[in-house]
Design a protein around this nucleic acid. Structure first.
Lengths: 371, 371
DNA sequence: TTGTAGGCGTTATCAC
DNA sequence: GTGATAACGCCTACAA
């Protein structure tokens, strides 16, 4: 049953009751003053004084129970070590914080069961909403997303008719940008180091690569294609395998982590970049510009996608009856030193090798593995 | 006053009342069964069935109000883009998750006011505890830390008598390891690229550098010392400034981000690494091994510090009366290609310069900017 | 303006 | 084992 109502909380800290008693008013009055609604000048003075004296701080949990909102927003991504997600996270954080909320970050490791667990946990209302960027999507996913009791926004490709707020890019076109650029600068044997084909981005990029070559009437030598996962080590290993059996004059990598791994493999193998092999990554993360030579990379607008996803989420939290929306962020290519040379005859004149040329990305930051 | 108690929550979702009514038992019985304590076989069956039928999921907030704990733990670091914090975060996450809790990550930007705000917000009980890794410490800080209403563990150097759980390393000794190594391999003009001197790690590393040289009786040419902040761009710029006015044969950098920036500057300036200039970073993050050449780096045990901090925090949450504890994680040096050559006459015989020599770090992963 | 009295959804205590 | 019922700390109709 519990003791009769005391004036302080279980752990001895002041509550509205403490303040009210000290100020000699009812808890209702105290609460009103504390929330800045109503109260006579005298009451306000007394309550404020009392609150200050006892060091009153409202209990967020009790407030949440009453208001039915926690002020927390969740973000679920595969790998917080991937700079592309750091960029996304920062953009989301900025929007979320401006609404007075906080971000809870989850790393799923790309595992569907982890994501399903998170989705299920949403039902207990520990957050007001969630942004999730799955790299694999199943029917279970779609079911859980559509039936979620709290607002969810998905960053990444989703079935065309999924009734879920969704922000995507077109990574197929992104790969095409890279291929077109390399062909335009004289490369002919373009290799591709991809992530797993059973992931949404992996499949899309594979399709994009093949379509781009086909569009140019170029036959694809399968020896020039390698698959690993979206990590540095896998990219390095995959590039080594590829180099062992083929002689590419350019490499497109499915994300920057892979590209950095490939760069390491190339340099360790004594290949010059870009003279011998040009290199283009994807996501245009901070990492790309840290390398030497700096990496050309396809921006998939990860920061922008994060920003928009956060905005969609906040809107839906404010009005859950909104119809599902879908937004698309176009890819763009940042050309840097790793591919900044035209093969046959280099023309360094009007085309400084350092710094982006082509459609300069709006943000100097990073981009996504998604889509 | 509000409507009489209904059977479902405000937003139409099932509550214990819904389940109880459906099962034809009291909410007390329903709650008991739901929590797996007590209940006759028949009652258990009915309640479980009812819960399943209506899709009951307990409300985390209500539960928190009752239990006085949120199941959330906060981590406040300067910059989530720094791989050292990613490593720390992962280690902390693992421990925290194993206790059934979740991690809320805050980026403070190293700004004291942000940290103070977080510390103050702790009073409203939105998390059960917090791990903070401040790079600047003020008296206000210490006051807030000591007087915190919820458990706090600090990663990083703190005044010797601060009554706060604390996990630290010895970055002074860490710098000494780097300097000793470089001197042992024949380097004589060792430069130092540091972070801000008004930060705890910045000050400690500066002192460590000077002390190490002094110990070897070497006069420090101030032209060989540069300061920026703990970021890539600053490191690159600082290294460029340093190169413009001095000719180091080795560079020690206060963290890996700076070291990567310095590497870029060196290579862009046409210096060979390690032949012309050896390079050693600090924190031993993933980044160090991604570079070409791979970077030697002083491990400050960031993952280990994170793990220990999390354990201390969980212990204190379980028993707030524990006396303040202090733990120390020793630094170690991982020697890699960027410093793996003895200058005057290479002697690969009994002292293999490639691959980690010194105390090999247990984890292949990353480490900290702190201390 | 002010105070009274629920109620947010849960758990726990206490009698039966 | 079970069922009322009182909290957890806060907010807010409603009545005064």
């Amino acid at each position: 049953m519990g003791r009769k109502r005391l004036q302080e909380s279980a752990d001895g800290r002041p509550t509205v009751h403490t303040v009210a008693a000290r100020a000699g008013v009812s808890i209702a009055s105290a609460s009103r003053v504390l929330n800045g609604v109503g109260g006579s000048p005298e009451t306000i003075r007394k309550v404020r004084a009392a609150a200050a004296e006892v060091g009153y701080v409202p209990n967020a949990i009790a407030r949440s129970l009453q208001s039915q909102r926690t002020g927390l927003v969740a973000l679920a991504v595969e790998d917080i070590g991937n700079p592309v997600y750091v960029a996304m996270m920062r953009a989301i954080e900025a929007v979320v914080a401006s609404s007075g909320r906080q971000l809870v970050v989850h790393a799923t490791g790309g595992r569907i069961d982890n994501e399903m667990t998170l989705l299920r946990r949403l039902a207990n209302r520990y957050v007001d909403g969630m942004i999730i960027s799955p790299i694999r999507v199943t029917d279970d996913h779609l079911g859980a997303l559509a039936g979620s009791p709290v607002p969810v926004v998905v960053i990444g490709q989703l079935g065309a008719d999924a009734p879920v707020d969704n922000v995507r890019t077109d990574s197929r076109r992104g790969v095409a940008l890279a291929v077109d650029h390399l062909l335009a600068t004289g490369r002919r044997r373009i290799g591709f180091v991809n992530g797993p084909l059973d992931t949404v981005p992996g499949a899309a990029r594979d399709a994009g690569f093949r379509a781009a070559l086909a569009r140019h009437g170029i036959h694809l030598d399968e020896d020039l294609v390698e698959v690993g996962d979206f990590q540095y080590a896998a990219g390095r290993a995959a590039a080594l395998r590829l180099l062992a059996r083929a002689s590419p004059d350019a490499l497109v990598c499915a994300n920057d982590l892979i590209a950095v791994g490939a760069l390491h493999a190339l340099l360790a193998a004594g290949r010059r970049v870009p003279e011998d092999v040009a290199l283009v990554g994807m996501d245009d993360t901070e990492l790309a510009q840290m390398m030497f030579p700096q990496l050309s990379s396809v921006s998939l607008g990860s920061a922008e996608r994060g920003r928009r996803a956060a905005e969609l989420l906040l809107q839906r939290i404010a009005d859950p009856t909104l119809p599902p929306r879908r937004e698309q962020v176009p890819p763009s290519l940042a050309v840097r030193a790793s591919s900044g040379t035209t093969l046959p005859a280099a023309r360094p004149s009007a085309d400084p090798l350092d710094g982006p040329t082509a459609p300069t990305p709006t943000h100097p930051s990073s981009e996504g593995v998604t889509a």
